[in-house]
Design a protein around this nucleic acid. Sequence first.
DNA 1: TAATATTAAATCGCACACGATTTAATAAAA
DNA 2: TTTTATTAAATCGTGTGCGATTTAATATTA
Lengths: 146, 146
Amino acid sequence: MIEFNKNNAQLEKHLCFSIYELSRSIQRMYKPFLNELNLTYPQYLVLVALYDHDNIPVSELGELLDLNYGTLSPLLTRMESQKLIERMRSTKDTRIVYIKLMLSGKKIREEAFTLPQQLVLKSGLNDQEWNELSKLSMKLFTNLSK
Amino acid sequence: MIEFNKNNAQLEKHLCFSIYELSRSIQRMYKPFLNELNLTYPQYLVLVALYDHDNIPVSELGELLDLNYGTLSPLLTRMESQKLIERMRSTKDTRIVYIKLMLSGKKIREEAFTLPQQLVLKSGLNDQEWNELSKLSMKLFTNLSK
DNA sequence: TAATATTAAATCGCACACGATTTAATAAAA
DNA sequence: TTTTATTAAATCGTGTGCGATTTAATATTA
């Protein structure tokens, strides 16, 4: 049984902290490469998402990335001014704004194809460990979303 | 062998994204409870760290939390104004500022003892899975820090 | 010892991240 | 059909998170 009390209350034993720290350290690892592409980490994720699901409403992009309008709207504004993406208002329902990858956005996304590979190399994890970590983190996320 | 190409480039297959999404979903789960205590997530982590390592310099707190001065300084200023912590400048070396838990900070930290337990319950992971996730995330973090 | 380098902490600028509010448009109901 | 409710997106306010700069104090060195 997993126990929590004064004796093991330390930061290091908090899974929440391990994950929080890990997430930031991955972004730190990605940073030099993304800087070369003039991208922030969430901007990179937007490109990844759009590369597979282009021309989708902001709402759908937000669901894919698990980000709300408050985060996404200004982020997309910045990416629009960099000519990475395009906003196109639907004619059917003018409330809806579709987001489309522009050519330069597509190219830059392709330049980043090696990034996950770099993480694998630095990870020091074998295939089994990598897959296990991936599986468990998705499982935990799914259960927390219920 | 783990492969990355156009065919599995989706967001869902990016470990970096799983971890990023998981980290934010844990914070989302903690939020209602922390709101009751008038704490943000990093403020909670500061209390956890200080509860075990009280009266330490800002630099040491930053190492424990893996946060730099740019994040920590204003965060501590806010916690100081809430009377959760105290800043005390060293007399030996007046560049150094020691951070001390105040009584109310200690009490609030203790009120949060049940929080990790709540995560365990919601996680839907068994002991083996929990420990495995914990182990692998720490291993990956360690390897990325090299 | 005077000049220089290093260090601890704070500050600044910018980009998230998110809850809450606002705006405009469509849908549903009276 | 007019009123009311809902929805999509943007905006706003606050708190991180981080790289770069600044400030003040201590350490090092010429």
